[in-house]
């Protein structure tokens, strides 16, 4: 039943007694409706589609498939297992590097210096850049004929004419670097916000007691940031797992499927080949993997408690 949080408030507005019971439900109804129709229902329908042969371009083959999509995925599709392996590499490298650079950047822009506001705004700017725009920026840089790499090689740095996006040996590093450029500000912003909550007195007391800079960092800064680091790392891992835009446009999963993550594989099944049934089975597998992450996350954050 809807009750106003404090009895005092009910007394202040006695006229509205009965209507109160419905007010919160009316207010929350649009959100709930939208989320049921456009989030919950579609998610549930994925499981149904994953049991079907379903391709929009081949309607004559459509029909109930049982577990066949799952069998294909697990036993007959090497790309599924390869994409899983690449997903782990991709997420691992991105999260570790972004955390490292983000932490360094947060520590630097937390110092006091002139033009600090402008410096912060500038280094945080890639945060608003979309995956597709990141692809545009780095395609121009990586161009073997007129890109920044060519400019460097004309100055004598690196070898001329390297097409980093076409070479299976370099494409991974090239994609990681582009995504790193876009992802570091997320960690830097979050960690900076947490750094600012550390009391200056702590550092002063530690200095008086003779603690050097490294010990102050290890014994004050790092323990304070621990929770923020755990949460941001988890969130980022999931976000990078789901990150399709950049790889779809920068490498297209190639060359030779060397950069196909599981969600990218799903997107290709959906957008390019209209294999909705098989794509739905891949989706279900991804959900299973993510569910584990979600449970860990919920455990750690203890979210949902009523703080009112």
């Amino acid at each position: 039943m809807a009750t106003v949080t404090e009895g005092r408030r009910a007394q202040a507005a006695p006229r509205r007694g009965l209507r109160h019971r419905w007010t919160p439900y009316l207010l929350i109804a649009p959100s709930v409706l939208l989320m049921i129709v456009f989030l919950l229902y579609p998610i549930l329908s994925v499981f149904y589609y994953s049991l079907q042969h379903y391709n929009v371009t081949e309607p004559w083959n459509n029909g109930f498939a049982g577990l066949e999509n799952y069998r294909t995925m697990l036993f007959e599709d090497p790309l599924f297992w390869r994409s899983l392996g690449f997903t782990a590499q991709w997420v691992g490298w991105e999260v570790i590097l972004q955390l490292l650079f983000g932490l360094l950047l947060a520590l630097i822009v937390n110092e006091t210096f002139r033009w600090r506001g402008l410096a912060r705004a500038t280094v945080f700017a890639p945060w608003v850049v979309s995956g597709v725009l990141t692809t545009v920026l780095w395609t121009l840089l990586y161009s073997p004929t007129t890109g920044f790499l060519r400019f460097l090689s004309d100055l004598g740095i690196g070898s001329p004419g390297t097409a980093v996006l076409a070479d299976p040996d370099t494409v991974f590093g090239a994609a990681v670097l582009a995504e790193l450029w876009r992802g570091v500000p997320f960690f830097a912003i979050l960690l900076l916000a947490d750094l600012q909550t550390i009391s200056k007195d702590l550092y002063e007391a530690a200095s008086v007691d003779g603690a050097g800079r490294r010990r102050r960092f290890l014994h004050i800064t790092l323990p304070h940031l621990k929770n923020a680091i755990i949460l941001s790392t988890l969130l980022r891992a999931i976000w990078e797992f789901n990150n399709v835009d950049l790889l779809y446009t920068l490498t297209g999963g190639g060359p030779a499927n060397a950069t196909t993550t599981l969600p990218l594989y799903v997107a290709q099944q959906a957008v390019d080949s209209y294999e909705f049934g098989y794509g739905a089975a891949l989706t279900t597998a991804s959900f299973g993997l993510l569910l584990i992450c979600s449970l860990v996350y919920l455990r750690l954050s203890r979210f949902g408690g009523d703080r009112a």
Partner: peptide, 8 residues
């Protein structure tokens, strides 16, 4: 993930 929601 957005990609998971494409089909449904």
């Amino acid at each position: 993930p957005g990609a998971m929601m494409l089909i449904p």
